[in-house]
Amino acid sequence: MKYLLNSKSWKWVSIGLLTYTVIGGFFLPVPRLPILNETIRILHFHVPMWFGMIIMFAISFVYAVKYLSTKELKYDLYAKEMVSVGIMFGMLGIFSGMVWANFTWGEPWSNDPKQNASAIALLMYFALLILRGSLNDDHQKARITSVYNIFAFAILIPLLFVLPRMTDSLHPGNGGNPGFNAYDLDSNLRIVFYPAVLGWTLLGLWIATLKIKLSMLQMILDDK
């Protein structure tokens, strides 16, 4: 985190990767599949949102554990900002998915296990923000939210990775399919998809570092 807060070079990597993602994602050839057609390009924008969300929540989980073991308020601040960026990614993922599903699955919400799981995941983290708001003392707020954060993340993993796999889903990688392999790993998609995941995640970290710096300044101003 110290490196992320103090250095600039990785931001250029993010800009470069995302420029490549937007250009490559829209103009490089993609496989022609019935129904999906050109909408398969959403892979580079919708799926990385979920990667971003899970990575943000994972980082937040790590800082929640760190807070409980060191009791330093800055770790709680990191955890909180990571959660809010994670929620932003989740919302973008849900809405981009709904727009896409409207055209390909015929309706924005089709009771798909992964759709439900991600909605529940967001509810959990919204609840975390409400919990934060309802406590007054800084250290108590940090401690209780860290506890709930760890609990929520431990529920999130089986919710997103185990339960949807036990039933059939419209998403690839369910009902016994191993991961993406079914049709996504076309090499044309792969050369854009992996950079896209990295690019969007770095962008998320960038937003988070800005928010963290802002909150730290706010804290200093409040103390004066």
Partner: peptide
């Protein structure tokens, strides 16, 4: 666990349902 978390807040009763429902959904679903 959720009750012990929610009891730390002033408006614990409301918070209890907000915190508990999303967490319980996986168990309930199964």
């Amino acid at each position: 666990l959720i009750a012990s978390i929610a009891s730390k807040s002033d408006n614990g009763n409301t918070l209890m349902s907000i915190l508990a429902f999303p967490v319980i959904i996986p168990v309930l679903l199964l």
